[in-house]
Amino acid sequence: MRMSVAFFTILTQNLVFTRLLGLSGFSFLTQRGKSLLPSSLLVLCICPLNTVLLFLLQSLIADPVWTAVIAVCLTLLLTAAVDLLLRVLLKESASAVEPHLLTAACSGAILGILWLSDGSVSGVSSAFSYGIKEGTGFFIAAAMLEALKPAVCSEQTPAVFRGWRGIYLSAGLLSMAAACITASVLS
């Protein structure tokens, strides 16, 4: 029962459908003909680490504006370090990973900042589980949109709605469906 409630919450209350976070990254990848799954898998890895890092950072900096800025810079600093390392190790192949890494870092940073603004986490383990939950929700939403991609990018879709606009419309409709399901369950 507890597992099914958790799954239902992740499916309907994830940040992609409730606050449309991560859509810019999806648009960035769709316009480059990349899959959404590798990036969302990276988000699943980055998100728990990011929330733990922010939890530790939060105790040092009191002002939320500065905390948000430092969180963004720190996440991108780590991403740039990993990206440069990949460039050294993989040479030309690193360019295939680069867009996924960048979008994952941006999404991971924003999910972390959102957690900071919620301020509902009390310990490191709680921060880690929040990161896992939001990361999983993000991955599930990305998988659903990736499954819809062949349809929204096909020639049967009007040309003007093909690509990122189709993905956005699908996300909007799924968001509406998630809100309706949640409302009906609550009522």
Binding site: V65, W66, V69, I70, V72, C73, L76, L77, T79, A80, D83, L84, R87, E98, L102
Partner: peptide
Amino acid sequence: VPFPVRILVYSVTAGLVYVPAVM
């Protein structure tokens, strides 16, 4: 300058500008 470093420098600069912008 490599792309990741450019993005990083942009973000840090934007981050520093963001604080007075919000204030």
